[in-house]
Design a protein around this nucleic acid. Structure first.
Length: 96
DNA sequence: CGTGTGACTGGGC
DNA sequence: GGCCCAGCCACAC
């Protein structure tokens, strides 16, 4: 994985508007390279620098240790949530 | 070069 | 909804 991929991922994440989300897999697709795991890797290393809570798993959840803070952000941004997880189908950012 | 690991996923039950 | 599993791919040992 190189710097270019990393920046491309962070760049896409920064473009996700408040109240909406994108999934690891879709971001990877959008970039046309790497895979969901690679996007996840970038997020684990540099996620703190971007709105990481707008990037969720295909099922609308995140690792347990992030769910706590994410819940707060989602509520603040009025993101479609149901039973503690994002309703991806409804919250998907425009263009995804 | 083989193995294990992980902010992942889709399919099957 | 949950569990299992194979496929995924970069990276550390």
């Amino acid at each position: 994985m190189d710097e270019e991929f990393t920046e491309a991922v962070l760049s896409v994440v920064e473009q996700i508007p408040p109240g909406s989300v994108a999934t690891y897999g879709l971001i990877a697709e959008r970039l046309g390279r790497g895979g969901a795991r690679q996007v996840g890797r970038v997020m684990s290393l540099y996620g703190q620098a971007v709105p990481w809570w707008r990037v969720v798993r295909a099922n609308g959840t995140l690792p347990a240790h992030l769910m706590i803070d994410a819940q707060q952000y989602w509520r603040d941004e009025d993101t479609p949530v149901r039973n503690g997880h994002v309703v991806v189908k409804d919250a998907l950012a425009p263009g995804f």
